[in-house]
Design a protein around this nucleic acid. Structure first.
Lengths: 113, 113
DNA sequence: ACCTCCAGTTCTGATTTGGAACTTTATGCA
DNA sequence: TGCATAAAGTTCCAAATCAGAACTGGAGGT
């Protein structure tokens, strides 16, 4: 059973997972909702390797969840922004957020001495 | 950056992902909501290898999302059922389901000539 | 000319999967 | 007794994916 074998599954949850069913993809999406949009921002924020960021970004663009837009012409730089389809994924991330806040309280209380 | 390095992340979405952020775990959870509870049921339904099912079930029990209950004593058989914490993950799966239904219509329309 | 920034790509070794067979405990049946 | 089946895992090996770091290429800045 491979990743893509789920994309025609009878279950909509499975189909969704075939697209965004991995830690890094979901983390990148979270970043998008937080306003991040550049390659390095995703790399720094998620902690995933550049290799993975590159791969996931490609998938997300292909799935039309993100759109690649040039924000600089001369050195040709692109940023990734949510499409409408991508924005509609917000509720799913919110559900994750709510569940995490309720059931997984942070343990190592940041720097808050 | 490893799986578990996210469990103390400041972001609740990241913490949630450190637990259930992978295709198979989420698919197993979906199955639980569909009423499945046995090892082989998960294996057959998800298509994941028994090895992966075994690993994910262990994680989920450890995270108290699922509970391992004996349903037979003589051959000692166990089934996995959602805890309250696990049931509260329902909205997240629903969000995935809704998004999938709307944005990823099934393509190879089953047997429908 | 040299350093830095950004967006990727490439390389290698380690970890995780996939797929299938095997184990254990117990039942059915001939 | 002997053989087959069932459930829940475990074990093994080859293949795919990942982590980590270095490298490439275009464009400034000084």
């Amino acid at each position: 059973m491979k990743w893509s074998d789920l994309d025609d599954n009878w279950c909509p949850v499975a189909r969704t997972l075939s697209l965004v069913g991995d830690r890094w993809t979901l983390l990148i999406l979270r970043d998008c909702f937080l306003g991040l949009s550049k390659f390095d921002e995703f790399a720094n924020s998620t902690g995933a390797t550049r290799h993975v960021i590159s791969d996931r970004l490609k998938r997300l663009v292909e799935a039309e969840i993100l759109e690649k837009q040039a924000y600089s012409d001369r050195p040709k730089r692109y940023e990734y922004v949510l499409t409408e389809k991508g924005r509609e994924f917000g509720p799913a991330l919110s559900a994750f957020k709510d569940w995490g806040k309720k059931h997984l309280p942070i343990r190592r209380a940041s720097g808050a001495a």
